[in-house]
Amino acid sequence: MTETVLTNIEKRRTTTVGWQGIVADWSSDQRAFKNVSWGKAMMWIFLLSDTFIFGCFLLSYMTARMSTAVPWPNPSEVFALTIAGQHIPLILIAIMTFVLISSSGTMAMAVNFGYRHDRRKTAILMLVTAAFGATFVGMQAFEWTKLIMEGVRPWENPWGAEQFGSCFFMITGFHGTHVTIGVIFLIIIARKVWRGDFETERRGFFTSRKGNYEIVEITGLYWHFVDLVWVFIFAFFYLW
């Protein structure tokens, strides 16, 4: 069903701002968040739920780390690389974080050009974002391989508490899955933008609904969320 058009909101908006505005919106009919579409509301609520998932993962990891009787391996040593004879701690993670944060920038630009109906720039920026994401996942795969070669397994590792490996693979794996899904999603939407689906109001293959450029922003919300989660993983897993 199409979303119903809201009349006479503007009038009310100007009269009530701040807390009173929120109360006015919530006690009004049709919509609690006046200028938020269904898709965007759905994404926000999903992200809230997903926050709880990552929160539980991170809290479990912290519990394991704090309650283990065996020493926890030192992350700055474990995640150090020797590049050109230089031993640099956490270098790979630093690059990965940089790549992911940059991808948030290109994503934000894509959203902007999307609303300006600049199909070419939007699609290119989305693909650049996807490329950054794929690079991130690639580096993650490299890191996994390196650790596995060094003997880290989910059930053991050469340096200390076995929960180190299990938490590492589980949390980065779950986050990496999120990034991968995001990359796929970005490519699909970029293709639709490129093809001009949102100009011709072409219907979606599964949902048989018409789309519009807002989907770029919704994809962006997801993407920024995945970045934000990474910052927490970075802080709690690597820097602690």
């Binding site: 006690s27 009919d29 049709q30 919509r31 609690a32 968040f33 938020v36 579409s37 269904w38």
Partner: peptide
Amino acid sequence: LQGRTRGMTL
């Protein structure tokens, strides 16, 4: 939250 009809306040 977002799909109610006219007049249907929370």
